[in-house]
Nucleic acid binder design. Structure first.
Lengths: 347, 347
DNA sequence: GTGAAAGCGCTAACAT
DNA sequence: ATGTTAGCGCTTTCAC
């Protein structure tokens, strides 16, 4: 590896001059610049990243903490958030370390931040009250969130605008004539744990029910197909006059769609379904394919990283987008309510 | 940030002694060790990672190049390989940088390896002849593969043992009485591009057909549900007396299963399906759920990283596992061929 | 516009 | 068993 000093000698200048040429931090004559560049080129000089990091006190590394656990499978769709984040980091001269975190553990990432390995940390699956966020703040470790806490005004984050996203879904169903809408959420346990998506999502559903003057009922299911199928039973027994489904549960909705069809409901003839939070692939795999208002996951991952990097650079970030809606993609699961509709269950 | 010299002063020893205590590279008296440790603890000393990296000439960073493109969607299932890799890196004191690569580009990763930012690179979607591998070798940049080239004997890699995996599937179908088996592969284009999975997969299928003395026909489809549905037409027209399907195509198989059912074939009553290469979630989402011999993706990602790290440490790696089979998981898509069976198409 | 020199925090060869 | 010292490759005052 050829180094700075060798380049300097070969170019007949001092080491510091080479630095100035590279960083542009001082005015250097055109002639010298050219000469130095030429020598660097010829010698195949590559500046050493670790030396720069040591000197500058910044590793340009960001860790993205990716929660894994043995209990529940990984959310395949999360790869989009992660890739969006990694891509944005690279665009800005940073690098994204993928950091598997068991049980939301954060200690080892903190340790590495304190050793100077990490300039900052990105958190996913944020709760309204999130110990991890508080802890990182108290240690002065820069954090960006995909999601957000209750007091997000002071945070760096990128999150879904659940109300706006659901409003798109409600508007679509209302436009199609639906007036009785089921909101398929996750379990009470997860609600209690305070995941922003769930709490904000349910709240928005109720609010929008009023706003659009339609009846809204919430059904809970855990994030599995099985659980969705069970939810379909519940639907059939208690809510079989409802015609619209808006789902916040990317897994269960697949089972739900299957379940109600097994019970004799036609999708979309009898029941229309829109997914708010979804794995795109799952929505495509489902039968019929599901209409969605999907989160722009890659953009959100990118925005969280961009915000974090701006803050690391002490740049202002006031005008950047922090809340994302997502676009309505109409697929096979939505249709108008037939005039004079009444559900027939073919059993 | 408290540093080495401060610890040394506070403990009344020299800086190097502190180093020896930490690295254990020289014998130090128990008393001194204890004292130094106590002081480090009290002062909250954290060794600086960048200084260590500079000094040691090793960043302990590995980049995993993740191919992305605008043409074909990302394979959601790949997250398991990536997480397995990241996890293994951390276990060994390394860190995995997720590196999105457009069009299989590798130049910027090479550059960063040359700046000392990267100790090594992990490649996915490896082709039998892979320019990227050759290039990295020629530049003396350590590489690990998830997948493998034609001359893999000298490579660090973790790959599927396609023949063994398919043998599990063949054996299962044969056990169930199937004697006419369709092998659902990907497109001719991808075959020509020389992806190991496809070339080795098809070859193994033909070999195993002979070995088990069953008839094998290959059907090609691109990696979409639509394409799988079309393949079902082909099946119905030309191969409707075939009763077993073994699929190497994780996307198309979902459409294929749907397509043949629409055409009146019952799964698994008339046709049994086993997936060799699959996204677990997709196999669960499908209706009926699909029997699989899935790749142990996380293990494979881990093995590739482990091999690379061993090589970076100049350790011997001869006895480690490089080829992975995967386990048969029976689900709803497989059943015995009814005695005296003949396919009825209900149309 | 350019150079000399100090130092980021660590390690290890060479003392003692 | 412990200390002295040089230096990893870079940046950045401070001089001229």
């Amino acid at each position: 590896m050829v180094k700075r000093s060798e380049v300097a000698r070969a170019a007949g200048v001092s080491e510091s001059t080479v630095s100035y040429v590279i960083t542009g931090s001082k005015p250097i004559s055109e002639a010298t610049k050219r000469r130095v560049h030429k020598v660097m080129e010829e010698m195949g000089y590559k500046p050493n990243a670790m030396a720069k990091a040591l000197r500058s006190g910044s590793s340009r590394m960001i860790a993205l903490l990716f929660n894994v656990s043995d209990h529940h499978g990984i959310n395949d769709g999360d790869i989009s958030y992660v890739l969006g984040a990694a891509n944005e980091a690279r665009k800005n001269g940073y690098h994204l370390i993928l950091w598997p975190a068991y049980d939301r553990e954060i200690e080892d990432a903190i340790l590495q931040a304190q050793t100077g390995l990490l300039d900052g940390i990105i958190l996913m699956e944020v709760r309204l009250q999130d110990d991890r966020v508080d802890l990182l703040h108290s240690l002065n470790i820069p954090v960006g969130l995909i999601g957000r806490t209750n007091n997000y005004e002071t945070e760096i984050y990128a999150d879904r605008d659940f109300e706006a996203a659901e409003e798109v879904a409600f508007a679509e169903l209302v436009r199609l004539g639906h007036t009785k809408i089921i909101f398929l959420s996750t379990t009470a346990k997860q609600y209690r744990e305070g995941y922003g998506a769930i709490v904000r999502g349910e709240k928005a559903a109720k609010f929008l029910g009023n706003k659009f003057d339609v009846e809204v009922q919430v059904i809970h299911a855990s994030n599995t197909i099985e659980s969705g199928i069970k939810a379909a039973d519940q639907f059939s027994e208690k809510f079989d006059d409802f015609t619209g489904i808006i789902s916040l549960n990317s897994e269960a909705v697949i089972g739900f769609a299957r379940g109600i069809q097994r019970l004799g409901f036609k999708v979309p003839k009898d029941v229309s379904i829109i997914c708010i939070d979804t794995i795109e692939q799952g929505a495509l795999d489902a039968e019929p394919s599901l209409t969605t208002v999907s989160p722009p996951a890659a953009e959100m991952g990118a925005a969280a990283v961009r915000g974090l990097i701006k803050s690391l650079r002490a740049e202002n970030d006031d005008n950047s987008e922090k809340l994302f809606v997502g676009k309505l993609v109409r697929r096979e699961s939505t249709a108008s309510v037939p005039s004079g509709r009444s559900i027939r269950k073919d059993r």
